[in-house]
Design a protein around this nucleic acid. Structure first.
Length: 658
DNA sequence: TTCTGTATAAACATTG
DNA sequence: GCAATGTTTATACAGA
């Protein structure tokens, strides 16, 4: 550790020219150095402090904390050093007359500010170490009390003397800190914001200058020497196994120790601080002492501080209460952990279906997501959908379909600002709806999704993935307050969309006609949106041209998944199908990108969708009969030229012809 | 400017 | 005849 520190210090030697490198020497513990006098004093004081500690005292452990802190200092200084212009550089600038006097003035001011900042940063490290030292010191006292609490009858006299000594020690340290803090504040070097007084000591003392730090260190060490001297005659506690007082493994204890020391010190330092933060003490609120079981009322903060120091000083009762509070907090934390675990399990349960199928096509999805988030939120749903129709083991749930894709493109970030709810809102709606269900149900706000997306969502939310028109209506009115008015308009739109988009397949059954979703067809509506993404196009091209394995996998999966409809259940490997669908989406996008208008004449597309369309829509089919026309669709998908078409022109054109 | 996707409105046909 | 359902057409808007 020493070597590392020394190495760092050496490598960052130039940093010592900045006044803020004062901790550097301390890290070497007496090594020769070229730091400021305050550095030597600090190092000497640290060493002096260490020497005065009982060998097995907490200070011994404390120094282990200090060392890492010290090691950080040179690093931070080194990081800042390049920003500081050396006098030589400044002279060069002046000689070259590169800068105007005004610029030079500004530059000088910046340099001064930078230097000051560096000094403060370094002092912050110093006081971080000091903070740890004090914390451990207090911890030491607390631990001592804890250990002595049980065998109190045997050592009561000794303990009392030690308690007194510790309290005096603490008070001295606190007073010194407060005095310096007050001085710093008066000098404008330290600013304490309201509500900031609860910060740790190092936060409050980051503005100290080396001279004050030096004085503080001297006083601290003198106080410690005094305490050492006082305790020299009655060190019976050393018989206890405090040789290795663990570093504050228990944050609660540490925190409490800090509280008992720091806050007292902060508050007692003077009126200035209190004016800035009169009610910031965690043990003081609404004029009441919040010490467990106390609830004493005070008119002012000063009275509270006196009460805190008098009534809740480091004694047996306070220690015991501290232990109880520790247990309370531990129980609460335990309970919190359990509840968190429960929440995680719930979320996992609800979302596992979405995460599982997405694992395989993730790269594609990632690319697509980036593209879509940039270009069009509408494109997101198809990306998230491929998995759903092809996952036999995981029944499609709307919540799961798009959850991992969406949230960034959630409605509120895109939708409501639009002047019109157009295709931009054809985004993955499941998560949004699930997350804002209450909102949509109660607020008369139009959901930022297309009719097609909403219809699809309604259908997919149904247990059998099929709904009658009236059920779709009901879903709209049930889920969205917006659709509880102007029924004629939006119902007409729903019907229009159902007929218009061939992704919605009408199926006649015993009860009448129901509507289902052809997910693949739905996904085909997306392509144009990704055409603008070079990254995605590149990715797709890779899949097409350089990824025969992927293409083969896709085609194989398509062969397996010859039933794209939800109503007929999905067949095939979820993983493979997920991948295949994802690839398919990308391919669709790529094809659209590279063959924009040629899609209508695509050989792989034209006849089959038309046949599919005819078969399903013109001929009343039994559920068993779906495999006929659907298999045709599958055959079409086997074509290397993956079809892509618009619902409008395509369907209408072919339907009209046929 | 063109193309594309969507929303809206309306007309018309079919069906129960 | 009527309402619900389904289809088709036309138009407008927005974005790429």
């Amino acid at each position: 550790m020493m070597q590392e520190s020394g190495t760092e210090a050496t490598s960052n030697g130039p940093a010592s020219q900045n006044g803020g490198a004062s901790m550097e020497g301390g890290s070497r513990e007496g090594r020769p150095k070229s730091a400021t006098p305050s550095v030597e004093v600090t190092a000497a004081d640290l060493l002096h402090l260490q020497q005065h500690q009982v060998e097995q005292s907490p200070f011994h452990t404390c120094l282990h904390f200090i060392k890492p802190c010290q090691q950080q200092v040179p690093v931070s200084v080194a990081m800042m050093t390049p920003q500081v212009i050396t006098p030589q550089q400044m002279q060069q600038i002046l000689q070259q007359q590169v800068l105007s006097p005004q610029q030079l003035q500004v530059l000088l001011q910046q340099q001064q500010a930078l230097m000051l900042q560096q000094q403060r940063t370094n002092l912050k490290f110093i006081f971080t170490c000091l903070h740890w030292l004090l914390c451990l010191y207090i911890l030491y006292a607390c631990l001592l009390m804890v250990f002595l609490f049980v065998p109190l009858s045997h050592h009561q006299q000794q303990v009392s003397a030690q308690q007194l000594a510790f309290q005096q020690q603490l008070l001295q340290v606190q007073q010194v800190q407060q005095q310096h803090l007050l001085n710093l504040q008066r000098q404008g070097l330290l600013t304490i914001q309201p509500g900031q007084t609860g910060l740790p000591l190092h936060s409050l003392t980051q503005g100290m200058i080396p001279a004050e730090l030096q004085q503080l260190w001297k006083e601290v060490t003198n106080a410690h020497v005094k305490e050492e001297h006082n305790n020299s005659s009655n060190n019976g506690h050393r018989g206890l196994d405090l040789s290795s007082p663990a570093p504050p493994k228990n944050p609660l204890l540490n925190q409490h120790a800090s509280t008992n020391g720091q806050y007292m010190s902060h508050k007692r330092e003077g009126s200035t601080l209190e004016e800035h933060s009169p009610h910031s003490h965690p043990l003081y609120g609404h004029g009441v002492c919040k010490w467990p079981g106390c609830e004493a009322v005070f008119d002012d903060f000063q009275s509270f501080l006196k009460h805190l120091n008098n009534e809740h000083a480091l004694d047996d009762r306070s220690t015991a209460q501290c232990r109880v509070q520790m247990q309370v907090v531990q129980q609460l934390e335990l309970q919190l952990a359990k509840d968190k675990e429960r929440l995680q399990a719930m979320m996992t349960h609800l979302h596992v279906k979405s995460t599982e199928p997405k694992a395989t096509p993730q790269p594609l999805n990632l690319v697509s997501n980036v593209t879509l988030s940039k270009s069009a939120p509408e494109a997101s749903p198809p990306l998230s959908l491929p998995q759903t129709p092809t996952t036999p083991t995981a029944p499609l749930t709307p919540l799961s379909q798009t959850h991992s894709v969406i949230t960034a493109n959630s409605l509120h970030s895109v939708g409501p600002m639009r002047r019109r709810y157009s295709e931009k809102y054809n985004m993955p709606i499941s998560p949004d709806i699930s997350q804002n269900k209450e909102f949509y149900m109660n607020a008369d706000v139009r959901p930022p999704f297309t009719y097609a997306s909403l219809i699809r969502q309604a259908i997919l939310e149904s247990p059998e993935k099929q709904l009658t028109l009236n059920e779709i209506y009901n879903w709209f009115t049930r889920m969205f307050a917006y659709f509880r008015r102007n029924a004629a308009t939006w119902k007409n739109a729903v019907r229009h969309n159902l007929s218009l988009h061939k992704c919605f397949v009408r199926v006649e059954n015993v009860k009448g006609a129901v509507w289902t979703v052809d997910e693949i067809e739905f996904q085909k509506r997306r392509p144009q949106k990704i055409s603008g993404s070079p990254a995605l196009v590149k990715n797709i091209q890779t899949s097409l041209g350089y990824g025969p394995t992927l293409s083969a996998a896709f085609q194989a999966s398509m062969a397996e998944n010859n039933i794209p409809l939800y109503t007929t259940a999905s067949i095939g490997s979820p993983t493979l199908n997920s991948l295949a669908n994802a690839i398919r989406e990308e391919m669709n996008g790529a094809m659209d990108h590279g063959n924009s208008n040629g899609s209508d004449s695509s050989p792989g597309r034209s006849p089959l969708p038309a046949m599919h369309h005819i078969s399903v829509k013109e001929e009343p089919l039994d559920p068993e009969d779906h495999e006929g026309p659907l298999s045709l669709v599958t055959t079409a998908n086997h074509s290397p030229d993956f079809d892509h078409h618009r619902d409008y022109d395509d369907d209408q054109g072919h339907d009209d012809m046929l």
